[in-house]
Nucleic acid binder design. Structure first.
Lengths: 347, 347
DNA sequence: GTTAGCACTCATAGATGCTAAGTGCTAAAG
DNA sequence: CTTTAGCACTTAGCATCTATGAGTGCTAAC
């Protein structure tokens, strides 16, 4: 069990180290602490904290830095989200102050704002689409050979893809097929649409085309794009600051990861119970992220599901500021998206 | 005037330096040169070359590296494109061996291939769109409030944009307006379309809507996107290798530039007379590119205009290999795009 | 339990010396 | 006039050393 003083010291070590990036010594600590003890006393306490594995030295006679366990303890028990700077608050509000035509624009913008606010890397994921319903499917002929397939969901996502018309399909039967799609699939959740696409639909289509597979590929392709979670990343370049640029290759792998949707999905995982959670580098599976830390924030957009926005930065992030900021930010973002749906989504 | 021997030495200095990145000394030079002279003689020649400003030292007793003037002379008079590695050739051919639905996919792919082949950064710009003609304009209603505007050009570019319907426009007059657009504008080059959009069209539209400006904004927006040159960049991260990573901020600015369409347009400039040209860092306006060099290659796609593909790397690139590679590559790319048009574009 | 004092450790920065690679110059040879 | 051997000189890079300052752990006294 930790004494009150030990807690105070641990908290201050984390604060100072995350703020200034330098190991914290007993004297520096004393200057900051409201205590009337000597540096020797502080040192004794630090030995205890080290014995418990909460802090560690970078070399035999260095100051202390928090250990992973120390960060974890700090985050679980000690951190107090600080309130947001008036300046930052203004930036958030003005940066969002545009009109958006697509929900993804808002989500993309949110990543930009957050990254510029923090100088870290922000990853934004719109409200879940899993329960989204298909509200419309269009095929627009562009010229003799090409067609644009457009798919709309009630979550506001619009996806399109250009295709050349498969052989063996004439435009008459194509129109009938579109009608079938609209009758059978529109209104259903995307998950069900995908299921039906492999079960009942192929049979229905055989009435109108010999080999429906060509067409189903088209539809399936756009559907997949629409159902896929799309992450927006802001401030990618800020990763350079964090990384100990020694190994350029690691940096490149990291960028490759950040650019890959699947990897990001794995990284963020499922929306958590807590609105804000912090995952430390060694708690994540990827070795590249050893020295990083991920703060994820979840927000609700009433019946439209939950979105996530995350901050990727060094393990030594100033958590209390970041968490405070993210907490406000997620609410602002939710508000903005709710507004959007209020104007376009629901009717 | 340079003697034959001096030319040989200059050429070899450039070759060795661009290949190994190390200043070239008189002994190393002798080993590589088919000459029966002593190192002292070579040194004397190097003094002459230095007097002429073609090579320079990094410090008082170092080997020589080419000066900017030296590179320029080398590129103008001495460089011989080397033939392409069989291996590289295979990579090019297999990497292009897919079917593409949009011309931009080919262009984007070309940047990827070239960058992975060279470990530099590749910038690809499709055939010019300036003379492209508008072949179709569609408005597809998505839901009660939103409409997708689609614009097709004969260059194969398709552009779309989602809009909320401006106030004061009902769907009846909207349809009439679409007809006017199709009658008046389809078939014209985009440049003329833009002109007409500001002259005759507004008057025509006033018959059907009170304030045509809302609608014209929509159309103008998509048009602008379609007429805009779209650059695809591959191997961005390779810039890290080149840069002397000391100043992270410069690197960031560089990335910001690479991500901005307008800046890239300025950088590449107009297609040149020569199929392949090299611009050295100090010949470019941007200070960030001081230590870089840009090799631009132009290719023709018969009546569809000219495209460009460029390679951005350190000034000390192995030019003869790169130029040889680019020369082959631009032809392969032209072939691929010509094929594409043969299937979809012309009818 | 707390503190002063002290011996000890280590990162950092600056100084020193050595070596290998390279140069320019000079004087002699071709 | 060109080429060459030889030599004195310069420099980057590297390893080695030293002083300094910030920090520690420990002990003995309060």
């Amino acid at each position: 069990m930790l004494t009150k003083r030990q807690l105070l010291i641990l908290k201050e070590i984390v604060r100072l180290y995350t703020e200034y990036g330098q190991p914290v010594g007993s004297k520096k600590l004393l200057e900051q602490l409201p205590m009337h003890v000597s540096s020797a006393t502080v040192r004794n306490e630090m030995v205890h904290l080290e014995d418990m594995g909460l802090i560690e030295k970078t070399h035999l006679s260095s100051g202390r830095i928090p250990s992973m366990k120390g960060y974890r303890y700090y985050l679980d028990h000690l951190v107090e989200p600080s309130s947001v700077d008036a300046n930052d608050m203004a930036v958030i509000e003005t940066s969002f102050d545009q009109s958006y035509h697509e929900i993804d624009q808002i989500v993309a913008q949110s990543a930009k704002i957050l990254s510029s606010l923090t100088s870290y890397t922000a990853i934004s994921l719109g409200p879940e689409l899993k329960e989204a319903r298909l509200t419309g499917f269009r095929l627009v002929p562009l010229d003799n050979n090409q067609v644009m397939a457009i798919l709309v969901t009630d979550s506001g996502a619009v996806e399109n893809q250009i295709f050349s018309i498969p052989n063996g399909i004439d435009s008459d039967s194509l129109e009938k097929v579109i009608r079938i799609i609209n009758d059978e699939l529109v209104g259903l959740p995307l998950t069900k649409v995908i299921k039906k696409l492999h079960t009942s639909i192929p049979q229905l289509l055989t009435h109108y085309m010999i080999t429906p597979s060509g067409f189903l590929d088209i539809f399936g392709g756009v559907l997949k794009k629409a159902a896929q979670e799309r992450f927006y990343v802001g401030g990618k370049m800020n990763l350079i600051n964090t990384s100990t640029i020694k190994d350029v290759n690691q940096l490149k792998s990291l960028y490759a990861m950040i650019d890959k949707n699947d990897d990001l999905a794995k990284l963020l995982g499922e929306p958590a119970d807590q609105p804000i959670e912090v995952r430390l580098g060694d708690e994540m599976t990827n070795d590249l992220l050893k020295n990083f830390s991920l703060i994820t924030a979840t927000y609700n957009v009433s019946e439209h599901g939950r979105g996530m926005i995350a901050l990727l930065g060094p393990t030594s992030m100033p958590y209390s500021r970041m968490i405070g900021l993210l907490d406000v930010f997620r609410e602002e973002l939710a508000k903005k998206i709710t507004d959007y749906y209020a104007h376009f989504g629901d009717e």
